[in-house]
Design a protein around this nucleic acid. Sequence first.
DNA 1: TAGTGGTCTAGACCACGGT
DNA 2: CCGTGGTCTAGACCACTAT
Lengths: 253, 253
Amino acid sequence: MGTTQLESVPEPKYWHLKTVLSEALDSEFSVGEILPNERDLAARFGVARATLRQALEQLELEGRLQRRRGVGTTVAPPRVGVAVGTEQHAWPGAAGDAWQPLDCTESVPPSAVAAALETGADESVHTVRRSRVSHGQPVAAELLYVPASSVPDLSGIDAPSGPARARAVLRELQRLELEGEDRAVELGSASAGDAKELDRLPGAPVLVVTTRFFAEGRTAALSVATYRADTCRLTFADSGGVEIHHGPERQAS
Amino acid sequence: MGTTQLESVPEPKYWHLKTVLSEALDSEFSVGEILPNERDLAARFGVARATLRQALEQLELEGRLQRRRGVGTTVAPPRVGVAVGTEQHAWPGAAGDAWQPLDCTESVPPSAVAAALETGADESVHTVRRSRVSHGQPVAAELLYVPASSVPDLSGIDAPSGPARARAVLRELQRLELEGEDRAVELGSASAGDAKELDRLPGAPVLVVTTRFFAEGRTAALSVATYRADTCRLTFADSGGVEIHHGPERQAS
DNA sequence: TAGTGGTCTAGACCACGGT
DNA sequence: CCGTGGTCTAGACCACTAT
């Protein structure tokens, strides 16, 4: 027997609304165009503003919309492809990497970081802050933790902090022989600091990429990079050498 | 520089609430324990239920909580590490892969799929549905698109659909020589079908892993896998179960 | 049936960005 | 200053699960 469920279940309003809006975005709007404001849209669809917002939030999560307080809601461009996995393993800061060092401090890291680094709970660690920009927009913020023991020859460097010291730490790191990497991706929400750097509100969805770098039989560095989940598509092109011609997709360097 | 930012900016209530709850989860609750219901919690903190829910939603997004209608809110276990990238490339369905074939149909795919496959807009494609289970819980649902031209010798197979045909398609795929893969990860929201299979509500956040398989100089198959973003941490290395941090925030100082 | 989280409403005020 | 999206309230009803 067919067991044809008649589905007397009413679809939530915001879900239906999201579908309608999504189709409207495809057919009646172009990238960058601004939508009517939330109060007008809610009135037009005959729902409360909160319900309308629930639909907009979903569409923003899917990268279809971009909302900015004091400005309005605009149609978002397709997500930017951001290369995360490299063909051959390389240290952060190696030639051609997409990150710009911002700052560097030295301190005892949070316990979670110490655990991942497999260092002692009170071992000093350099923390390098870096930023990644693509198509003129900030797409990711990174904290790179380097145990002091990984870069022992840092005494000759004058700068106690700042970009100069960050570059020095990265340069010293290159001296080690990289034995392997270990990468994980998970969903998170932007901290206050990340949010500021990524030009989003705190709590905005981010893709957290955690990379451990191995050298001399231990974890020599730990990178925690947070990418804007609304605008980024992380690519891991570890293809066997064949470069495929891409369609209309956008790829970052 | 002291940079003592006085920041007279009032922190949103739900944000502060989230912090308080997060600390309480660390110190006063254990995994699997059920929290008081939303109405009681809201009353206890002196906020409206909607505000309390905003905090709970964030914590659920970060994998700290699990909420189930009709049941309650429980403390979630740490995210499961799910291996996605393998060192050596392999076809889906190869020995030891974590997926279980469920079904297979043949039809003309959605235009977006046809574009990614670089096939004609009306070329027939096998669609294999597969499911992935980890620690007894469904963690991912996959749609694997295989152009009919990639598996030409499927005439001898009787089963027109079902798991048997799915396995047959995968088996035929193995005959091709895999030349490379191309993988991307982005944030999405669960469709109605995915939600059912993942035991979540529609719209739940998912990590969408899109993989293109290359053979004979073209795209021989396309996999679109949606992972539960609340319970999964995608790992891209040989070690799938390594314990990394599960901390909510990072300290820059 | 009782209790849970999910949806929805109709307001209000606030923070921010441009004019 | 005005208009925007962001936060918050105090309700109401619905859908689901367990007992």
